[in-house]
């Protein structure tokens, strides 16, 4: 088991191996992400019953919740990749942290925008400075901060290190986001999905949400792979194996 992990680590650390391996994944990931998004959206927009309190505005949940979950997961992945870079100096980890940042920020922005738009008909206001909304806005600024640091310094290594350190420090915001709806009085409704409890939602409403969450994670994997391959091409542009790709 341990040896297998060590081997996987060395392979993942090899840009060439990653580039060649993911060549075959792109098509299937795109198909799975696109297909599940279509199924999830058709079920969520056409077949899920309207909410008895919120009416049809609740259908925003099918983009809002997956985007918010992904924005937080992506942040944690970015921090872990940053830690791997800090500890073992793995270049691939630094590139992955760098490509995750703007994608995570985009999903954080989607969560904030759709949340504001959903808030208007539900709470009567686009924005309140409550704990959940404020901590999500903090997450967006943390992403911007990490992105800025990752290209702030003259040496690439120093920039990656600075970005990784901020990403790790910013991790404290993640449990704050999660428990914000329990610790403070807030307009935001408590979690719709809990791992430890049976969902309170009607299955016809719940299934499209689960499908959209899976779709969002697949899409994220696809985009991170595409962007990491670009980083590899750029950083390895003078290597023989990239030369062959360029000449073909």
């Amino acid at each position: 088991m341990w040896q297998w992990l060590v081997r996987l680590y060395h392979r993942l650390g090899s840009p060439k191996w990653f580039y060649e391996m993911t060549e075959r994944w792109i098509f299937w990931l795109a198909l799975a992400a696109g297909g599940s998004a279509i199924v999830g959206l058709v079920l969520g927009l056409l077949y899920a019953p309207a909410d008895y309190q919120q009416g049809d505005s609740f259908r925003i949940i099918y983009i809002h919740v997956p985007a918010a979950l992904l924005a937080q997961s992506a942040y944690m992945m970015m921090a872990v990749a940053g830690a791997v870079y800090l500890i073992w100096r793995m270049k691939m980890a630094a590139w992955v942290a760098k490509v995750i940042a703007p994608v995570g920020a985009a999903f954080c922005l989607i969560a904030l925008l759709t949340g504001a738009i959903w808030g208007k008909p539900t709470w009567g206001t686009w924005w309140v400075w409550d704990a959940r909304l404020t901590s999500m806005l903090m997450l967006l600024f943390l992403y911007f901060g990490v992105m800025a640091l990752q290209q702030a310094m003259e040496s690439e290594e120093a920039s990656y290190k600075a970005g990784a350190i901020l990403a790790l420090v910013g991790l404290v915001n993640i449990p704050i986001i999660k428990y914000s709806v329990e610790w403070w009085n807030t307009l935001h409704q408590p979690a719709t999905l809990k791992l430890t409890e049976k969902p309170s939602m009607h299955p016809d409403m719940l299934w499209p949400l689960l499908i959209m969450i899976v779709s969002t994670y697949l899409f994220f994997a696809l985009v991170v792979i595409l962007r990491t391959r670009n980083e590899i091409l750029w950083h390895e542009r003078k290597r023989q194996w990239v030369r062959k790709i360029l000449e073909s």
């Binding site: 259908r59 925003i60 809002h64």
Partner: peptide, 21 residues
């Protein structure tokens, strides 16, 4: 969308633009 069309489609539209980008 039961009078909520503006909010629902604005959400989905903005998301589509960001995702496309």
């Amino acid at each position: 969308m039961g009078k909520h069309g503006f909010y629902v489609w604005l959400s989905y539209g903005l998301t589509a633009v960001i995702i496309a980008f």
